[in-house]
């Protein structure tokens, strides 16, 4: 699956990203949209009861971009989005580094807020990434959270196609 619009962008990369550049790409030569919403996720120093010192992000290379493109397509089917930009990093990350960027532009803010939230919730449950944290007690794989499952169900219940 590939992205249908030249204004959309998807990247799975080891390198860091520049939020200012991503925001400019959502905004430049764009007079039709009244709203941009973006989210960036960071490596924090405490998770699931342990002091975290770093993070390794594993993924399934053959599947990752396909899964993310599918999530972008679903979001564009539900909301009128002009531009979507999604970056997810893989490999070794240090504390406070950026992990993920999701940015969307739309004519209205409600669509932009909801679509950005939707993309993050789906990404957390359906894109093949796994976090292995290094902690003071040794390395450990991050466990899936019930609240992420519930977040996905909420979108499925809100979708007229699923009700």
């Amino acid at each position: 699956m590939t992205l249908s619009s030249p204004y959309d962008f998807l990247s799975v990369q080891e390198a860091d990203f520049d939020v200012a550049h991503e925001y400019a790409q959502l905004r430049d030569h764009n007079s039709q949209d009244g709203a941009i919403v973006f989210f960036s996720g960071l490596v924090r120093d405490f998770n699931q009861g342990s002091d975290v010192t770093g993070l390794f992000l594993e993924h399934y290379p053959a599947m990752t971009e396909k899964a993310l493109a599918g999530i972008i397509t679903q979001a564009k089917q539900r909301w009128p989005l002009s531009r979507v930009r999604l970056i997810h990093r893989v490999g070794q990350l240090q504390l406070a580094e950026q992990i993920v960027f999701v940015g969307v532009s739309s004519s209205h803010r409600e669509a932009a807020f909801e679509a950005c939230h939707f993309i993050m919730d789906y990404l957390k449950k359906q894109a093949p990434f796994w976090k292995k944290e290094t902690t003071r007690q040794g390395p450990r794989w991050v466990e899936t959270l019930k609240k992420d499952e519930e977040a996905l169900h909420k979108w499925q219940q809100d979708d007229p196609k699923h009700s």
Binding site: G41, L57, M120, K124, P128, F129
Partner: peptide
Amino acid sequence: DIVPLDAQVLDGNEVAFFPPVTGG
């Protein structure tokens, strides 16, 4: 593509097994 256990597999296909994903 994520599938349930009853999905149909054909010769030449790739099947992956993995723990629940934890990206984002």
